[in-house]
């Protein structure tokens, strides 16, 4: 038996292929899959949310609240905002929640509605508002989310999706981590329709509380001057663009014959004591 040294012309064990193309095809497929799952989950959550009792929500709310870290800052203003919220609830928006305001030290101009009636208000927002009516509108807006239970819809999807992705790829896989981050970004925000509905709820509420709607659009009118809405992060990214939002509010004010009148100033003693 003799040996004939020879080399094969081609490498049979490696498929000649473009990995880059495969990557884009598969990533596109995965994206399609996620969108499909997301839509399906949306339907499921919408069906489920009306059946979640307030009691159960309060229990879940504790976990959500604990996941937002930070200390309660500024007890004076917190007390004031809390009493404003309680007043609104008692007189005009009868919601089956016990709202608890948490003021958090952050420059973000933002407020968050968490399950269980925990409303987080950042000091950045408190520094921006200039009248009680304006602040009341923002609070009533958050109450609007509770009235329509948007916070559960948003949170519900996030929770179910994260569970799903962990199941699919394993909790610690790199794909899952990246997916988790991208999902978080989209999940923290409400849809435009939900925001518009909350705006309408807020308008009704402050009209009931003050007898007029003065100051309702003040907050949104400030925003474009301060900062580009795109840079604001999730709150304003999904809140309808301010121009559109203001004109929508003004339309309602006109058609319902609401009375835009003088604003009530914020309590000087509390607001001016801040360094």
């Amino acid at each position: 038996m003799k040996y004939t040294p020879r080399q094969p012309e081609s490498n049979v064990n490696v498929t000649p292929t473009s990995h880059l193309r495969e990557f884009f095809v598969l990533a596109g497929g995965l994206l399609g899959l996620i969108v499909a799952v997301y839509l399906m989950l949306g339907l499921a959550v919408d069906l489920m949310v009306p059946h979640i009792s307030i009691d159960l929500e309060n229990k879940i709310g504790v976990h959500f609240f604990q996941s937002v870290d930070g200390k309660d800052a500024d007890p004076q203003r917190e007390y004031y905002v809390q009493s404003l919220m309680d007043d609104l609830q008692e007189r005009c928006a009868k919601l089956p929640y016990r709202f608890k305001i948490h003021v958090r030290e952050a420059s973000t101009v933002n407020a968050m509605a968490l399950p269980g009636g925990h409303v987080i208000v950042f000091t950045g927002l408190l520094d921006k508002v200039s009248s009680e009516n304006e602040l009341a509108f923002v609070l009533a807006h958050e109450m609007g989310h509770y009235a329509h239970r948007d916070h559960l819809r948003a949170g519900g999807r996030a929770v179910v999706l994260m569970t799903f992705s962990a199941l699919l790829f394993g909790a610690d896989s790199s794909v899952s981590t990246v997916l988790g981050h991208t999902l978080n970004i989209t999940e923290l925000s409400f849809s435009r329709k939900q925001e518009t509905q909350a705006d309408e709820f807020a308008l009704e509420t402050i009209n009931c509380a003050y007898g007029h709607v003065g100051g309702a659009t003040d907050f949104f009118e400030k925003i474009p001057k301060e900062q580009d809405p795109g840079k604001f992060g999730h709150y304003f990214a999904s809140h309808p663009e301010n121009r559109r939002r203001i004109s929508h509010l003004n339309n309602i004010i006109r058609s319902r014959g609401f009375n835009p009148a003088k604003r009530k100033p914020l309590p000087e003693a509390i607001w001016n004591s801040i360094p």
């Binding site: 038996m1 040996y3 020879r6």
Partner: peptide
């Protein structure tokens, strides 16, 4: 009868099953 040899030959493939 083996008259001639050419050394080692091999074939491999890696497969994943779908989810």
């Amino acid at each position: 009868t083996i008259v001639e040899h050419f050394g080692l030959v091999s074939g491999s493939t890696i497969r994943a099953k779908h989810i």
